[in-house]
């Protein structure tokens, strides 16, 4: 943790793998990158074993590019597709048992704030709909009730994709899946409303169709969590395998869903709004000065 941990000791550069040297020289550590510069810097995720055309992988790629301070961040995940990419990144990753990510994150965040009282250490949970809204439901809700200061991101693929396609609480009503042939009989859980009612200070719902918007939402959620309390992002990340979406149509599907039930939604308390506007104003001024100089 911290920049010292990332840097290569003098004299050891020629023995380190090329990818790691690139990561330190041309990566995100110690400097702010704009997500629109993707493809021009070394990304934190080196490679990942997720399916071709997986938009959960895409969301995770943008998430890492958007991290305000990757060297001071810890990511938590649980069983599910997301952990396949999360564990390949150059950011410390903790693999919780199924469903206990938010409980682990609560303890971790408290410990970090005692150990580093004068530093911002970000804790981010990224788990699927099963990990957060089905099996981990109790722990997720209680971390919000307690007002724990970390970010929870739900990458919602609306199915248990790893285990053959069982329905989850987040699958839309009536959908037929490989392991749910009769069709789902209940409505999709309204996770966003639950988060607002449970005491989150910043809540957003997004479909990954615009990298700039994803980055903005992720950064806002992390900044708000540092100071005020729990934050939550509900992201639609389709499963092209279980929902049989041709890989070429994955983005088209995300755009379609954005028009239907995944319209961009953002909610925050007044004090968070004030705080974020202040931060974003300062960022803009800094960028203007950089351009001038």
């Amino acid at each position: 943790m911290g920049l010292e941990y990332v840097r290569i000791s003098p004299g050891f550069e020629k023995y380190m793998p090329r990818d790691y040297v690139d990561l330190v020289k041309f990566g995100q550590f110690g400097r702010e990158v704009d997500v629109m510069q993707l493809g021009q810097f070394k990304e934190l995720v080196e490679e990942h074993p997720m399916c071709a055309g997986c938009y959960m992988a895409y969301f995770i790629r943008i998430f890492y590019a958007a991290l305000p301070k990757p060297e001071d961040t810890i990511v938590l995940g649980t069983a599910g597709c997301a952990r396949l990419a999360l564990s390949q990144a150059a950011v410390p990753f903790i693999y919780g048992n199924y469903g206990d990510t938010n409980a682990v994150a609560s303890g971790l965040k408290r410990a970090l704030s005692i150990r580093f009282p004068d530093k911002d250490k970000d804790v981010v949970v990224i788990a699927g709909d099963g990990g957060l809204m089905d099996i981990g439901f109790g722990m997720t809700m209680h971390s919000w009730f307690r007002g724990e200061k970390f970010t929870t991101i739900m990458v919602d693929n609306e199915v248990y994709g790893n285990t053959g396609g069982q329905e989850s609480g987040m699958s839309p009503k009536g959908v037929q899946l490989k392991m749910a042939p009769l069709g789902k009989k209940f409505d999709k859980i309204n996770a966003v409303q639950l988060a607002i009612d449970a005491g989150c200070v910043y809540v957003a719902k997004i479909s990954p169709t615009n990298p700039k918007k994803i980055a903005k939402v992720v950064r806002r959620a992390i900044f708000a969590a540092r100071k005020f309390g729990p934050t939550f992002i509900h992201a639609y990340t389709s499963c092209n395998i279980e929902y049989s979406i041709p890989t070429r149509e994955v983005l088209a599907d995300a755009r379609k869903r954005e028009k239907e039930d995944f319209k961009f939604f953002e909610w925050m308390t007044d004090e968070v709004k004030e705080y974020l506007e202040e931060i974003e104003r300062k960022e803009k001024e800094r960028k203007k000065q950089e351009v001038k100089s």
Binding site: V35, M36, L38, G39, Q40, K42, E43, L44, V45, E46, E47, H48, M50, G53, C54, Y55, A57, Y58, R61, Y64, P211, L251
Partner: peptide, 23 residues
């Protein structure tokens, strides 16, 4: 335009060359 780079789900796969202005 660089749009393809921004929508690829694979990291470090589609990149952008500033010298030739091409992906």
């Amino acid at each position: 335009c660089k749009q393809c780079v921004l929508f690829c789900p694979e990291p470090n796969c589609l990149n952008y060359k500033e010298s030739g202005h091409t992906a």
